[in-house]
């Protein structure tokens, strides 16, 4: 699953954590989506031309250890803060996608002393509507064919060929799917207390959102962004839940305008 970077296992928070590092420059902590498709995406190499891109796999993802007591993205966020400390990073730009965005938000409400900027891309994490409002599509209850068309502006972009993967790669795919459910099953894709803590985020924050995201709609992203003081919200045309993969150029120009 890993891309072209240097992959190593480090100890953080007492756990064995997989970290991939690519390029050189100011540190950019990239928190991948639950599927970790970012690890094979070309935009990461682009970023690695000006940043050192650091991609830790949270507990349960990639080959990182997942202890039984862990059950929430809140738990994962502490380990990711530990990674920043263990690697001695400072002035870190944190970019999180989907579940990675949720983890990034959980980190930023706890401690931003090492974080300089925050970017959340089609992130989960809060509930903005009432008990009967479906803020986030129920990806585990809806038919898989419906989920695919909601996730991708062009469902063809979501096709993955598992037949070319070896057992180690398939094990990572299966672990990622399992851990995603482990941490996000209920309360579904959100931490009820996170929205009440987001006022604590005191670094410049940008929300980037796929205009055609049917999992977390742009209206959800916009409402989420309003909970973070001074945050900006940008929509990317012709893109679903993963704008960085479906409309990479537009995504990169929005991102670069903020982080450079």
């Amino acid at each position: 699953m890993s891309g072209s970077g240097n992959v190593q296992m480090i100890k953080a928070g007492g756990l064995s954590i997989e970290v991939e590092r690519r390029g050189a420059g100011r540190p950019l902590l990239l928190l991948a989506s639950e599927e970790q498709l970012e690890r094979e995406a070309s935009f990461v190499d682009e970023l690695a031309k000006t940043f050192e891109v650091i991609m830790p796999s949270p507990p349960g993802f990639g080959t990182s250890e997942r202890p039984d007591w862990m059950g929430k993205p809140d738990d994962l966020s502490y380990v990711m803060l530990d990674v920043i400390d263990v690697l001695g990073l400072k002035d870190v730009t944190v970019v999180g996608f989907s579940l990675g965005g949720w983890i990034a938000a959980e980190m930023a409400v706890k401690n931003t002393t090492k974080i300089s900027k925050l970017v959340l891309v089609d992130a989960y994490g809060v509930k903005v509507g009432g008990p009967y409002d479906r803020d986030i599509m129920d990806i585990w209850t809806d038919h898989p064919s419906k989920v695919v068309t909601a996730k991708w502006a062009n469902p063809e972009n979501g096709k993955r060929d598992f037949s070319v993967m070896n057992d180690d790669q398939l094990t990572v795919v299966a672990r990622n799917m399992e851990s995603f459910a482990r941490f996000c099953w209920s309360p579904y894709m959100h931490n009820p207390t996170l929205r009440e803590r987001l006022h604590r985020v005191n670094v410049p924050t940008l929300f980037i959102w796929g205009e055609k995201d049917g999992i977390t709609a742009p209206s959800y992203g916009e409402a989420y962004s309003k909970l973070v003081p001074g945050a900006k919200f940008v929509k990317i045309a012709n893109a679903g839940h993963y704008p960085h993969l479906e409309a990479t150029d537009a995504f990169m120009s929005a991102l670069n305008g903020f982080i450079n």
Binding site: W140, H143, D167
Partner: peptide, 22 residues
């Protein structure tokens, strides 16, 4: 039964799901 109800993620161990992907 619709497919998503037959094998929710984590119901069976990872090695079963590796076989499911195959």
């Amino acid at each position: 039964t619709e497919p998503q109800y037959r094998n929710p993620p984590g119901y069976v161990p990872v090695d079963f799901n590796v076989n499911a992907l195959k």
